[in-house]
């Protein structure tokens, strides 16, 4: 594995009650690159990225062991400042979830909760974030309209802009295009391609073509285990494991 490592996961196990959702996962996520997580439904890939920003904490009866090293610290430690962590590792969800507020207020939400009140500073952040998410031109004349009036694809890019406004280092994307039509999907994919220059991106996807298009590395999860992790080209064209081959050639899943 070449390049700098952003997140290093060691021996990660995770249980929901008695059900073990992740089994001894070891993976190094490269910095400023797109890593795709693929696998059939229920394989643990969503659970895995929700571990990286501790969103699994919202689930009752969750417990985990192992290490997730980010910036030299194990973020699974109980003394981790979860709020600060989520500011650095942001998440985009499967279903676009803009708040029922105006477009401007959606993007300004993060900076505001982090204490920025100055109107001029907020204006700048909103503009920069919307531009960063490639949606500025579409919404610049209607920033005070409700975000819920945007199309699904626009809403998802708005959610990405909302995330960029808090200036994270890592973007977790949980099937960000699965609810979108092909044109909106390709816009999101173009955006991801742009964003990887500045951000480390981990994307969960069901769509193997999408994984092949946007990512440099791909991890295949099955039944809570990380079966294979390699460069995207290797994983799709020269899988080492039989299961991976079956999956990427469409024999199951």
């Amino acid at each position: 594995m070449s390049g700098e490592i952003e997140i290093s996961v060691k021996n990660l196990n995770l249980w929901f009650g008695n059900f073990q959702a992740l089994k001894n996962v070891n993976i190094d996520i490269p910095k400023n690159a797109v890593t795709a997580l693929i696998g059939p439904s229920g394989c643990g890939k969503s659970t895995f990225i929700k571990t990286l920003d501790r969103m699994n904490d919202l689930v009752d009866n969750v417990k985990f062991t192992g290490e997730v090293i980010y910036k030299g610290r194990n973020i699974l430690n109980s003394d981790t400042d979860v709020v600060a962590l989520r500011k650095e590792i942001g998440m985009v969800f499967q279903k676009p979830n803009p708040f029922p507020k105006s477009i401007f207020d959606n993007v300004a939400y993060g900076p505001r909760v982090h204490g920025i009140r100055d109107k001029k500073a907020l204006n700048e952040i909103v503009e920069r974030s919307l531009k960063g998410a490639a949606i500025w031109d579409e919404v610049k004349d209607r920033l005070n309209e409700s975000a819920l009036r945007l199309s699904g694809g626009q809403q998802q890019r708005l959610c990405i802009a909302r995330l960029l406004a808090v200036e994270p280092d890592v973007l977790l994307m949980d099937e960000p295009a699965s609810a979108l039509d092909p044109i909106a999907t390709s816009k999101i994919e173009d955006l991801i391609y742009e964003l990887k220059k500045e951000y480390t991106i981990i994307i969960v996807t069901h769509n193997m073509q999408q994984a092949a298009r946007v990512s440099s590395h791909t991890a295949f999860f099955f039944l809570g285990e990380l079966v294979e992790y390699a460069s995207t080209i290797d994983l799709f064209e020269r899988p080492r494991e039989k299961k991976t081959e079956d999956y990427v050639t469409g024999k199951f899943g």
Binding site: D53, M55, M91, N97, C159, R162
Partner: peptide, 9 residues
């Protein structure tokens, strides 16, 4: 989730 994922308390 959207709010918490942005680091809001």
């Amino acid at each position: 989730e959207g709010s918490l994922a942005m680091g809001a308390t």
